[in-house]
Design a protein around this nucleic acid. Structure first.
Lengths: 333, 333
DNA sequence: CTGTTAGCGCATTCAA
DNA sequence: TTGAATGCGCTAACAG
């Protein structure tokens, strides 16, 4: 780092100018074989590595992409980040990562910091917005290739990779309704999932911290819900903990469906019925969309939304009469 | 990004030299109030943001730290990364993240890439090494502040943050032995946990992929183990899945203790007894050690090892007669 | 208090 | 095929 070799050191050792060294390292063909060998030997001898900071400044691109996710302790986001990081590696790109903690202001600041670092593009799992419009629409991000993941940004031209929330919610609630449930409580951070659902559904927006109280409150209503539908896997796990501490184990007296599968969903008995999303694929696809734009394929932001399919994994938590180890897939669309 | 303002634009608009702008943005006091206000107004008007790449090149430091973790889909690593990212944010640092997939060569390459980007320091959860000595001992990392997390690197002077594996393993096995178990199988990626344990323990090193076969093989031995001790939470979950598919639910006929707690450990019935580690704290502490070195407090690598305590959370998976929702903590050291 | 000069390490452009 | 000059955008060191 500090005492590391520069290109001029290599040039001196090889008895050439630094341009020749630069050419060798760039794979430029206009170097004689003999010179190239001499240069590469010098590179090896000095263990020379190009300074990417200088290169970025000169080339006006950094070969870095940024990722902003709400949290890393939600496995959904972590797996997305991992997939993105893998794709970046294949492209010899670095990944700058930041967490927004679901705070739009923090998201804006982290994304801005990345712009200052000249990231070539950005993959964003947007924080749940509380303002009129997303701060990501600000001028500082104009011209920067941005792909959003899991949630779109209204009014933006960002490409986005989504799952079929609507269909997933439909699968979940129809499943519950088919089993006789009429009072279904949705618990989640927003009501995004609820476009176009049967009207019997009770929508409850809530924060993670208050899920325990909220669950108690719901269950002590005069006509308590007979089923919960949880908006993501953090919420599912919170609610399960709340229920557990009340000695309640779905499906009875209350059924439960979660949006987003989680590792141990089938180890809980009865297993937890969930809407499964293709998480790894989602991250990978987002990265590929971004790199396709970076490679110049489609320079202009199209605002294209790609929707990946979900499926219902029926385990036992809604009262199915199945062995818990054998999930049944329903309606892959 | 592309068409964004440069310092010279601000200088021109404010009618000063770029040095004055630079001083204002650096918080340098040697600027008259009136000039400063004019400059800041111009900065606001142009929405100017400093180019961190140029700054890094000039200052020979990047205000970036690197993190290399094996995976992000292990919640343990993800939570560490999240904690590190939070601390970095407090210090106005960016985080470059890479995954090694537990491959020492990939780890080396990713770390090298970070060096080329002039990261100011590195936090590493080392890949399980298969060579004579870690590639991280190579010359390219000399002089770079490196802190390792969760696992030390033999022969290095890197500061490291560890948990008390030895004591944790002792807690787990003593617990099992107290309950009458004599044939205990350890399942994990390495036998790191096994310094100084009672000799009755069977050590089985294995890969995740083969855990299912391994579990079957173990259980079909003539004298099968009566208890499993799993080395990390990925392994624990894999083994639980294997057992589940065989219709086996700890504690009977086989007990199970896991190293590292996981979110749903108490939702499985009976709850899974685990050795709990202070994961968030571990990540946070590692970051703080690194930033303390970056701030110049202790420039020389001391090779200091900080060991954080673990505790045994007794749930039901070893045959305790406890309500599953109420874990009992044992022997906090 | 403010400005000028110089250079961080590299790649683009032009000339030889 | 090779090299010299130039500048990416910024800040340290010095001069005024």
């Amino acid at each position: 780092m500090a005492g590391s070799a520069r290109m001029s050191d290599v040039a001196e050792l090889a008895g050439v100018s630094i341009m020749t060294v630069s050419r060798c390292l760039s794979g430029n063909t206009n170097v004689s074989l003999e010179t190239r060998q001499r240069v590469l030997a010098a590179v090896a001898q000095l263990r020379y590595q190009r300074n990417e900071v200088a290169r970025s400044l000169r080339e006006q691109r950094s070969r870095q992409i940024g990722i902003v996710v709400p949290y890393l302790f939600d496995p959904f986001f972590a797996i997305c980040a991992h997939a993105i990081s893998s794709v970046a590696k294949q492209h010899s790109y670095s990944v700058v990562l930041a967490t927004s903690n679901e705070d739009p202001q923090a998201e804006f600041e982290e994304a801005s910091r990345m712009v200052r670092r000249n990231v070539d593009g950005l993959i964003l799992i947007p924080a749940h917005n509380v303002f009129d419009s997303s701060l990501m629409l600000a001028r500082e991000f104009e011209g920067l290739p941005i792909v959003t993941l899991d949630r779109p940004i209204d009014g933006s031209q960002f490409d986005s990779l989504l799952v079929d929330n609507e269909f997933g919610a439909e699968l979940a609630t129809k499943h519950l309704i088919a089993l006789g449930h009429r009072r279904i409580a949705y618990i989640g951070l927003s009501n995004n999932l609820f476009t176009g659902l049967p009207s019997k559904v009770v929508i409850v927006a809530g924060e993670l911290e208050s899920s325990h109280m909220r669950v108690r409150a719901l269950l002590s209503e005069r006509q308590p819900p007979t089923a919960f539908f949880c908006g993501n896997n953090l919420v599912t796990r919170h609610v399960l903990h709340s229920l557990n501490s009340l000695g309640i184990h779905p499906p009875s007296p209350v059924a439960l469906v979660g949006f987003d599968d989680f590792e141990t969903a089938d180890l809980i008995r009865p297993g937890i019925t969930v809407v499964r999303q293709p998480v790894e694929l989602l991250g990978r696809a987002a990265a590929e969309v971004l790199f396709s734009r970076l490679s110049g394929a489609n320079r202009t932001p199209s605002g294209k939304r790609t929707i990946l399919p979900v499926e219902l994994l029926v385990r036992g938590s809604c009262g199915e009469n199945l062995t818990s180890s054998k999930a049944q897939k329903v309606s892959i669309r």
